[in-house]
Design a binder for these strands. Structure first.
Length: 274
DNA sequence: ATCGCAGCCTGTACGC
DNA sequence: TGCGTACAGGCTGCGA
């Protein structure tokens, strides 16, 4: 379940794959859910930039003849980009192949077909509803406090709401609440300014640590997260709440509990998260 | 208006 | 062994 650190890791891997500036000569689509316009719109264009916005990957393409267009990809749970050998056939769950002029072949794989690929000439409009980037300098503790206080729902549900702040998913929400010692069912609007400041710091801490570790890869119920080069992130080794059901809380030794909040498995310490 | 929840989809982990 | 079922997850769209 790629969240901000996983998507950031993917973007860095893609940028490091020296695809920028290269032209796509053809695009093959193997999934009926994906727009058949993709090959026509992308073929013959140069990849000029790759950016992350929340959990979205934003590919910017240019063409002397056709101007600019954006391809905006959301990995959802199982989307990943893979390097392929030049003439290697598509694997079972590969949905799109991008063939570059230098022979590079990049596959987009998505086992559960939840991922989305959108073409737009108005990326600002596409992203207009999204909340602020949690790691952006302009996003301050005060700004977070002013935003979250108007949410009526449980703080866990608010953290998952991409209108409040982008990039947080189920894993990092549980980790941030554990670190801030805030109970996931607390009403968002009940948080004191001091608690919001703690949560703000916790969000930034867990996301930064996730990026440093190259993202979180889970191999049991959840699908693996892989870099473009096949390496998995290591952040799953440093989780304190998510997936730690019945294990002792690192702070107070109380068993971590699992409940359901907002239809999501939610892990927390019943003693030190209040 | 706001919230909760079914549905999308497939692989994996269980119980019988 | 083989089958069936529950579950995981982000987000949209529906109904309450």
């Amino acid at each position: 379940m790629p969240e901000l650190p996983e998507v950031e890791s993917v973007v860095r891997a893609l940028k490091g794959a020296s695809l920028l500036g290269k032209e796509v000569v053809s695009v093959e689509v193997f999934c009926s859910k994906i727009s058949s316009e993709l090959p026509r719109e992308i073929s013959g264009r140069r990849l000029t930039e790759i950016q992350r916005r929340g959990k979205y990957i934003h590919f910017l393409w240019d063409s002397d003849l056709k101007g600019k267009v954006s391809l905006i990809v959301h990995l959802r749970m199982t989307g990943q980009f893979l390097w392929k050998r030049e003439s290697e056939p598509a694997g079972k769950h590969e949905r799109v192949h991008f063939l570059f002029s230098d022979g590079a072949r990049i596959a987009f794989q998505d086992t559960r077909r939840f991922a989305t690929l959108d073409l737009t000439t108005d990326p600002d409009g596409f992203f207009a509803e999204l909340g602020p980037e949690p790691l952006d300098p302009s996003f301050t503790a005060e700004a977070f406090f002013q935003r979250i206080r108007i949410y009526q729902k449980a703080v866990k549900a608010s953290l998952l709401d991409q209108h409040l702040v982008v990039g947080i998913g189920n894993i990092y929400a549980d980790e941030a609440l554990w670190l801030a010692q805030i109970h996931p069912l607390r009403a968002s609007s009940s948080l004191l300014k001091k608690e919001c400041a703690q949560l703000y710091e916790a969000i930034r801490t867990v996301l930064k640590k996730g990026i440093e570790n190259g993202g979180t890869s889970l191999g049991d119920a959840a699908p693996n997260f892989h870099h473009l080069n096949g390496r998995s992130g290591q952040n799953q080794e440093e989780l304190f709440a998510y997936g730690q059901t019945s294990k002792p809380c690192v702070r107070c030794k109380t068993a971590i509990e699992k409940i359901v909040v907002n239809q999501r498995g939610t892990h927390f310490c019943p003693r030190c998260q209040v």
